[in-house]
Design a protein around this nucleic acid. Structure first.
Length: 226
DNA sequence: GACCAGGCACATC
DNA sequence: GATGTGCATGGT
């Protein structure tokens, strides 16, 4: 098979899945955060953690009126850790937040608009240098806080697309990201909605222990695309 | 009580 | 580069 044919078929497959999900679930209105800064904080707090637990932590920061770059960065470790307790890994996440805040304040004066003006690849490299910000967190910040066109890959994405035969189970982050970015239109809104829909699908139908493939919106496609 | 959740860094080989 | 481990809460 010619490379272009496969590319076209993959593109179509990925887009059909998107349309199915959008039809089933509707727009997801991501990211659930009021400001770019809140999105950045949420991106770090939600690492390997249920979003409900993160919401409690963010609500707690708001209640204490410290959801602000300078105030958060000046908060003693113990106080910060206590406030974000519900998000789990609170000691390590308090450190990670501080690491990010230092970068955000020193490099961009805690100004999301200024940050947004920077080149995407430059920003990506800078974010990945922050201890505690990995590939998914960096891309989440780029896409959902700064509206940069990058595709966010998470555990659900890998699970869903390996089960559907697009990638290997142990595919690397960058490989999965490329699959989407090379086969979809480079569109912030599309990337925003697609990832959000995959999380929605994952939560409801693709749990590790109890997948519900029978009633899944993609069940008609029956895990066959090739 | 076991398992899981919108990861990441670090040690070791 | 691959593999294993610690980090921790709250829901099912």
């Amino acid at each position: 098979m010619r490379h272009e044919d496969k590319l076209t078929r993959t593109s179509k497959g990925l887009y059909i899945i998107y349309k199915n999900l959008h039809k089933s679930f509707g727009p997801q209105h991501w990211w659930p955060g009021e400001t770019p800064f809140e999105v950045m904080v949420g991106a770090i707090l939600t690492q390997n953690t249920n979003w409900q637990n993160v919401e409690r932590a963010i609500a707690n920061l708001k209640k204490n009126k410290v959801l602000d770059p300078k105030k958060l960065s000046q908060l003693p470790h113990k106080k910060l850790a206590k406030m974000i307790r519900s998000a789990g890994y609170f000691n390590i996440k308090a450190k990670r937040l501080k690491n990010f805040l230092k970068f955000y304040l020193e490099s961009y004066n805690a100004d999301a608009r200024k940050m947004r003006q920077a080149d995407t690849q430059v920003l990506s490299n800078e974010l990945l240098k922050v201890n505690g910000v990995g590939e998914e967190t960096a891309d989440s910040i780029l896409l959902y806080a700064l509206n940069k066109p990058v595709f966010v890959v998470d555990a659900y994405t890998k699970r869903i697309y390996s089960r559907h035969g697009f990638i290997a189970e142990d595919a690397r982050y960058q490989a999965v990201k490329e699959l989407f970015m090379k086969n979809l239109k480079n569109d912030v809104q599309l990337f925003n909605e697609y990832h959000a829909l995959l999380v929605r699908l994952g939560k409801e139908y693709c749990l590790k222990s109890k997948p519900r493939c029978d009633s899944c919106p993609l069940s008609k496609q029956n895990h066959k695309y090739d």
